[in-house]
Amino acid sequence: MPSLPDMNTPEVADLARREADAHPAHPTVPQPDAGQEALFETLLRIGDSTLILGHRVSEWCGHSPALEEDIALANVALDLIGQTQLWLGLAGEVEGQGRSADDLAYLRDAWDFRNLLICERPNGDFGHTLMRQFLFDAWHHELLKGLAASSDPRVAEIAAKAGKEVAYHLERSSDLVVRLGDGTEESHRRMQEALDALWPYTGEMFLGDDKDADMAARGIAPDPASLRAGWDETLRHVLTEATLQIPEGDFAHKGGKQGIHTEHLGYILAEMQFLQRAYPGASW
């Protein structure tokens, strides 16, 4: 392979140095202590998940198969957006850099997002959306039960409020999964396909890292693995009634909680953040 001498000329190196001097890197910001950082991270994981899923669900508004469903699904999206405001609001407070929930939602790039990958999966057909909602709700419900007992009262308070909303989300999505699974041949097939397609995105919900371990040790958030039993129980119950097969495999796509996302998130953000990015500093 021929070398690329012009990339390495002293002039270029010099140019780069001068350019770098003209634009100093961001002044070093004071780092919160490790414990606060883990809490910040945990709050992003929850708040980003509700944000991105709420965004996805809101895409249905005006396009659902029946007016009643359109209204019901918008209620779910509204709850999730409301919860996002609380979780990201608290995240900003914990971070202590003066960032608001909106700053966090609209001014971070994909690699700083911490949502579960399942939340950013495209909507697919209505059955796919409902199955994603059910799998998420069943986990979300367990998570909030754990968070409601948090040693951090701010976390416990938000979880208690969100928990009531999510209990209803789960009731509704379970019901629809049962009905469509045990409906027509076509609805059954579509629900099974959705379950199979989404299954590899569920394992991530229960994978912990050192930040999760730290949160669990301090009683702030439950250990992700501990949510599995309750989730499994809900799934067994609902999917059996729905006459759907729980997939065998246990392969899990992961990375969302660490900021390594699917290609879809970039497009969600490009759309969601458009105005804030195109008109920096404007107030809306």
Binding site: L51, H55, S58, E59, C61, G62, L67, D70, I71, A74, N75, A77, L78, I81, G82, T84, Q85, L88, A101, D102, A105, Y106, E271, M272, F274, L275, Q276, A282, W284
Partner: peptide
């Protein structure tokens, strides 16, 4: 709805369009 500039505007607009349904 998916391009609303703040979380609050997003919620308000979604609630409004939902009302129309």
């Amino acid at each position: 709805i998916t391009r609303a500039p703040t979380l609050e505007r997003k919620a308000i607009l979604l609630a409004k369009v939902q009302d129309e349904a």
